[in-house]
Design a protein around this nucleic acid. Sequence first.
DNA 1: AATGAATGAGGTTTCATTCAT
DNA 2: GATGAATGAAACCTCATTCAT
Lengths: 198, 198, 198, 198
Amino acid sequence: MSLRQKKAEKKKEEIIQSALSIISEKGYHATTMEDIAAKLLMTKGSVYYYFKDKQDLLFESQKMLLEQSIANIEKVVFEDLPPVEKLDATMIIHMEYLISERTGFTMGARPEQLFAEEQLNDILELREKYSKYFDDLIKQGIEDGEFMEIDIRLVRNIILGAMNYMIDWYSPKGSKSKSELAEAISNYLLRILIKDPK
Amino acid sequence: MSLRQKKAEKKKEEIIQSALSIISEKGYHATTMEDIAAKLLMTKGSVYYYFKDKQDLLFESQKMLLEQSIANIEKVVFEDLPPVEKLDATMIIHMEYLISERTGFTMGARPEQLFAEEQLNDILELREKYSKYFDDLIKQGIEDGEFMEIDIRLVRNIILGAMNYMIDWYSPKGSKSKSELAEAISNYLLRILIKDPK
Amino acid sequence: MSLRQKKAEKKKEEIIQSALSIISEKGYHATTMEDIAAKLLMTKGSVYYYFKDKQDLLFESQKMLLEQSIANIEKVVFEDLPPVEKLDATMIIHMEYLISERTGFTMGARPEQLFAEEQLNDILELREKYSKYFDDLIKQGIEDGEFMEIDIRLVRNIILGAMNYMIDWYSPKGSKSKSELAEAISNYLLRILIKDPK
Amino acid sequence: MSLRQKKAEKKKEEIIQSALSIISEKGYHATTMEDIAAKLLMTKGSVYYYFKDKQDLLFESQKMLLEQSIANIEKVVFEDLPPVEKLDATMIIHMEYLISERTGFTMGARPEQLFAEEQLNDILELREKYSKYFDDLIKQGIEDGEFMEIDIRLVRNIILGAMNYMIDWYSPKGSKSKSELAEAISNYLLRILIKDPK
DNA sequence: AATGAATGAGGTTTCATTCAT
DNA sequence: GATGAATGAAACCTCATTCAT
């Protein structure tokens, strides 16, 4: 990739970051192209140089967010660790990413409302892939005899829901730090799975 | 209340129901007054007879939703039941209400973004009241020795998060019915609390 | 139709007239919704109350123009006159309409560029219908032995082209009046057809 | 002219050709600098190296088109031929040029709308010059006794209108070739003029 | 010479809101 | 009470134009 292309790529990422943070704060529809541009001291026009339309920017943002999240947990998922520790680590990574980026997976509307056709497919597939890592970790734990025989999909949704909700209530002013909270939540959630919790 | 007032009150509720269901589907900003009116075969002009503005309608809707939800779980909370069963019943009621109304507590944006001043206070207080019922149930369970000593607020948020997430993934086409799911989830979540799960 | 509907219908026609005259002056793309509204002392917003979008307004305008033109020449076409006189009258009507409305059939772009699918079909069919009246008149003249055996479609296009071009060069300041011009042109064009011109 | 200048001149012509064909297809306002550049695998930035602005490009294009057209018919006009044949040949050249370049003299708007001052004058003069050749041919025919005494300007406009309309209806898929059509049309139009048509 | 990037003016469109009837 | 009509602010988006490289 040429220097130019690299620069352009970097700019796109900057815009995406800006978009993600504002969308996660206000929701998709309340976020204006002006908002996104202004945060980067750009004009709307420039944003349109990089993205076809708002829809496109949303899609690219959502895609990047999911891809980063996937890359993020893959760091742990492929390590050689016992299932419990692995799931624990994965959950913690998920929550810390969530909080530090202040960026949830939600956009203030169902994906079905925001995307159509191929775009929707792409997003759903990435979500699927992400979820599957959790499912696999749970499954492994069951096979290893450490987890109980539970409804994998259901429990995975419980876990994701509990974690993602953090973005709604977390405040840096609280008595517990981000990490402490993540660890605590992870521990509580593991109790659903572990055969013989202490 | 005169007959006229009663009629007006009924109409207001109808509008609120319409608003709630569409907002929960599309998010606040994507929902137009037109949408809300059209669902009731009204014109948007009429809606303004009953509500000062969109903001007002949103506020009243959210308030009613929370008040109904509170009334809803109060049916169980004040019964004479052991804590485990009570919490179990409360969670199930919460989830069934969620699904049957297809109406989450989220509006596609943070309450802080949508409300200001007094309105915000009212809403936060109602949320607080709702949450407190869960906190109290948990506390009672701990005092009775049935639940472990856990961080009440944290676990309550885990529970609410896990339950509310249902609206994102629940589909009536699934193999389990709404009730079966609610029961299963409730059971899983109780494992976080119960001292000696079977 | 209720009084209200009638009024609305009248308003739509007003807007269409405004649109037609400006579009015929400036071309479709150079004509702004603002222009159209301003000419009627309305705001853009109001225009959108009556027409879905600019495209829609263009389509309705073009349709009305063609329908009016058709109705216009039908007044003569169905009369009981010898072919030569009939064609003569029809051409004159065509030209006088053109000039008095200062509204050509052209919109500054090919219909294929402006319309798609059904809309395009509708427009082309109306054009076809209009052309066919000319073709029929010519055909009748040939059958009656008054016109020569010529390529009907070709000659019809010559006639239409020659007439429509008027809008490009006609000026009220010229030495001949609108009617005189129309008659003169009609006479010249008939020479192409008539077997034995004096 | 230096080699460099020649190259630049050639590039300008390429751009003009591109502009002409797109403008004649879409109309001036719907044609973007991007369109024009893209057709030549250039970027719009480059076009600005050769032309001051869009206006300028339009003017140069229109000027070149008219100059070429004039040079085009001058090939015949100055030949030594009887008036009828000369006018016939001129018309045919006009039509063939029109079709082969797929470029009419119209730009989707009146020249008065697009040009101002000097530019407008230049264009109108060239148009005038072009028209005058037709007028002169007709006049010659009248003086030679081959054409009837008609309103020269009027008939010239009929002829131009009929010919230029071709671009609206001509399709290469038709049963007659471009040349056959041009000849047929020319013949029909001559009937308006010739004293004693066979 | 050429181009990628940026800009801003202006156009289209949406929608909460108002109001006369 | 209800509604059709109108409005204007604000959003999205396009594109001619400029400019540093």
